[in-house]
């Protein structure tokens, strides 16, 4: 049952500096709430431990996508719908709008934000494998200024990140250098929409003369954090894709996952499907079935 709304404090300072100064006054004392698609669900279940919330929904500083010559910067407050509807994102970072389309229904895509997905830090976060594959960088901001950190090492453990207590994610930066890559993304959930993934994959590869020159394979829901399958990448990189390699990659990927049993699925299933999705990706890659 829901707790009493009067037990919670919620403020909306309205600008990024005002939010940051509030966070700085009492580091860790305030929980930022953007679109509410995670926080309000916990609240509904009576399981929201934070009692003081600060709204960052629709802060103009967080809700824009800047296209620079070498990278794009996606404001952390951009919604999944914003991502799906952005032309450059769709053209150059297609895995991201695909992942955005997986999340919830349309109403949740209109409210859920990319920054929220990152800091909520669920291993099942839909957009996280894509960010891993693109080797995104995050711009973190606090009252003391900004810092840039690689996203691949942002998640430390289950729901633990490198974000400091008075810090916010301001933007996600993606380098514009994937025009030669072919991408593949697939979510396996309990149903086709409005589902929490059991396994989800985002992968990129660049082929030259039939040889895999570069490959990035990222997976969600198979470990306490979103996972890059480095070992699988290693055995595929520099190789020609043939059936034995696909089988080896399938086994390697399955072994590289660290899944658990929970109410949504089993560890064995997640590992097996993780391996299968990698095999499927490589199979399609070699068959030329993926559009770049």
């Amino acid at each position: 049952m829901r707790a009493h709304p009067g037990d919670y404090e919620l403020v909306a300072p309205g600008t990024l500096p005002a939010v940051l100064s509030l966070l700085a006054q009492e580091p860790g004392g305030w929980l930022p709430i953007a679109g509410g698609t995670d926080v309000m669900v916990q609240y509904a279940a009576g399981e929201l431990p934070a009692r003081k919330l600060v709204s960052i929904w629709n802060l103009p500083e967080l809700r824009r996508i800047e296209v620079l010559p070498n990278e794009i910067q996606i404001g952390a407050g951009c919604t999944y719908t914003d991502l799906r509807e952005h032309e450059v994102v769709s053209r150059e970072f297609a895995l991201l709008p695909i992942a955005a389309s997986w999340t919830g229904g349309i109403a949740n895509q209109n409210r859920g934000t990319i920054g929220g997905n990152i800091v909520n830090a669920s291993p099942a976060g839909d957009s996280l494998p894509a960010l891993m594959a693109y080797e995104a960088e995050l711009i973190l901001v606090s009252i003391r200024g900004e810092r840039r950190v690689p996203y691949t090492s942002f998640h430390i453990d289950y729901r633990k990140t490198r974000l400091a207590p008075a810090e916010l994610v301001r933007a996600v930066c993606l380098e514009r250098r994937f025009s030669e890559y072919q991408g593949y993304a697939r979510k396996v959930g309990p149903r086709r929409a409005q589902a929490i993934s059991k396994v989800c994959l985002a992968a990129l590869a660049r082929l030259g003369d039939g040889v895999v020159e570069d490959i990035r394979i990222a997976m969600g829901s198979v470990a306490p954090v979103p996972l890059r399958l480095r070992e699988t990448e290693r055995i595929v990189r520099g190789q020609r894709i043939d059936p034995p390699l696909v089988q080896l990659a399938r086994r390697t990927a399955a072994a590289e996952t660290r899944p658990i049993d929970d109410i949504r699925s089993t560890a064995r299933y997640r590992a097996a499907v993780g391996g299968n999705l990698v095999a499927e990706f490589l199979g399609r890659l070699s068959a030329g079935k993926i559009k770049g």
């Binding site: 669900v41 279940a45 309990p190 149903r191 086709r192 929409a193 409005q194 589902a195 929490i196 949504r264």
Partner: peptide
């Protein structure tokens, strides 16, 4: 005992 975890079909299923 939540609609998130007890899975009924959506229009897409």
């Amino acid at each position: 005992s939540q609609m998130t975890n007890y899975i009924m079909p959506t229009s897409a299923d």
